[in-house]
Nucleic acid binder design. Structure first.
Lengths: 321, 321
DNA sequence: CTGAAAGCGCTAACAA
DNA sequence: TTGTTAGCGCTTTCAG
């Protein structure tokens, strides 16, 4: 306390917060001393008195992935409009980072929204009692509030679109890590379902697993061309893989979309800029972030959680098909 | 306090933090009650006792700009390795948001790193006494610790490269907002300097101001083609503008690089993927974020701030020149 | 193993 | 205008 230094007492408080009812001279003196000894009010002590701004944790796998970046933008915007703060956490897309992170997070924030796959990690946060919204994980038990993405609508459109163009051999480039996690994404399931419903057969080698990156997509395409040359259209787990695969196909001399058509998922900004522009299943990513914050707000005010938000998707047809 | 509910007293603390020296039975009972009444330890009260994790504020103009995204990734990584947290703040690239944000920020975090232009905003944070590192604003007074980007090296390479290819009429597409702020970026100054040193003339209409987006770049290119058709090479404020301009030029029938060459700045991931791949001045964006955290750490331990970090740049030649 | 007391750094209420 | 008292919610002595 500056009481020892300045001649005055806890009246420093009045000075620091420059309240009224204080002699300007005293205030200045206190402030001067405070500056000299590098005094800084404690965030926590303050937070205890004034009811501080709510701080929400946001867990995403990877900041460099434009998909999550847009979710962050949406959440940030919604948070800012409520005067809330956002603390960013990253799992580096590593399943084994989820658990330790989740265990420490509840102590740091007032509420949390997170992309998480590990059930234990999800349980850790949900069990901590803080308001919580889970993102993009549809096969989680119903006890936790969710914002989920309805890929079915868009993916069905995609399949119909390809079928209408006469494609009979439709392959898929999937996310290896996601598949390996034992909790395959809805996209994978929907691909199989849609093919069956359309009466199309699928061979195992028509599904290639890829590391989630441009190069990963290219590598998967290389294998696809070697092992399944009969495939004339490829549905990709996301735009990044689609772009990597498409570029590789072009480099290897395939004409697009004549020899092979490509469809991505997400509709990240770059997809409209590549050549040829990528046909893709559009997801309103900002809306995911916004909706998550809104659900958090609902939990915090009413106590009860509101109904899950479902983000619809739709096909955006461009030149790659 | 759970003392009223559970039969026991502040020994809940022992239970909550599951310390040793407590009867498992008692612990479980306390925990059960705590869960039932939705008890959650207060972040702040805790932070007062245990010295809590340092929380650093990170201010950037825009999360959706891949340049800043990579800076965030670098900062996040460096922060995580120290066990620090990052709170994200955004100014939405609006100069007038900087001041109010800066004034409230010091109370929320233990330290701060920020992309800021408004001198008042900078002074507000610097004056608050928290450890502070300013990013990318080179013409700020020397009193504040900085990580700055040395565009000169890379930009000089870029000019030499264009000159070596015989370009005599080199234009520039600049960032309108940055120019309008009255604090033009070093890039703008260096463009003029480099041209003079190379003995090249510059006409006013060779410098077009653009809104910082793909479309903004396209619009600026449209004006450039109309007002300065003699220009055969264009240096752009950043890759986004360059890509927008280049695409528009192609759409209008220009051959690239034969009719017009383009050079960007930043080397964001997309630049290598567009067609033709963009020649650009590479900036190590992750390093900016890392360096900022390192300088913060230096300030917090030694008290004195370490020397500013300078991020070197270099030209990456691709097919657009 | 459990309870009582003291105090973290600050602010709010009331006196002086 | 300034000082005093009390207490925010928790952890940490030190006794019981």
């Amino acid at each position: 306390m500056a009481r020892a230094t300045g001649v005055s007492r806890q009246t420093v408080s009045r000075a620091i917060n420059n309240m009224t009812q204080i002699d300007p001279a005293t205030r200045d003196r206190v402030l001067a001393v405070a500056r000299d000894m590098g005094y800084r009010p404690s965030r926590h002590a303050r937070g205890m008195m004034r009811r501080s701004t709510t701080t929400v944790g946001l867990v995403i796998p990877d900041v460099l992935n434009p998909f999550f970046t847009e979710v962050v933008a949406g959440a940030l915007e919604a948070a800012k409009s409520r005067g809330w703060q956002l603390i960013m956490y990253t799992t580096d897309s590593a399943l084994d980072q989820e658990k330790p992170l989740s265990e420490s997070i509840a102590a740091q924030v007032d509420a949390c929204i997170a992309f998480l796959l590990d059930p234990d990690a999800i349980a850790a946060i949900a069990g901590s009692g803080i308001p919580f919204v889970l993102l993009g994980n549809e096969d989680q038990a119903g006890s936790v509030s969710k914002v989920r993405i309805d890929f079915e609508s868009g993916l069905r459109e995609a399949f119909d679109h390809l079928a209408a163009r006469g494609h009979l051999h439709i392959g898929m480039i999937d996310d290896r890590k996601r598949t390996a996690s034992g909790r395959p994404d809805a996209r994978t399931r929907l691909y199989t379902t849609a093919a069956m419903e359309a009466g199309l057969r699928i061979e195992p080698e028509w599904i290639q697993q890829a590391t989630n990156s441009i190069d990963g997509g290219a590598a998967a395409m290389e294998r696809m061309m070697r092992e399944a040359p009969e495939v004339t259209a490829i549905l990709c787990y996301n735009d990044i893989l689609a772009i990597g695969a498409m570029r590789h196909a072009m480099a290897r001399g395939l004409a697009i979309p004549e020899s092979c058509a490509f469809i991505g998922v997400d509709d990240i900004p770059i997809s409209a800029l590549v050549d040829p522009p990528l046909t893709t299943v559009h997801v309103d990513k900002r809306r995911i972030g916004q909706a998550a914050i809104e659900q958090l707000a609902a939990q915090m005010s009413s106590g009860a959680s509101m109904a899950d938000t479902v983000i619809r998707t739709r096909l955006v047809v461009r030149a790659s098909t």
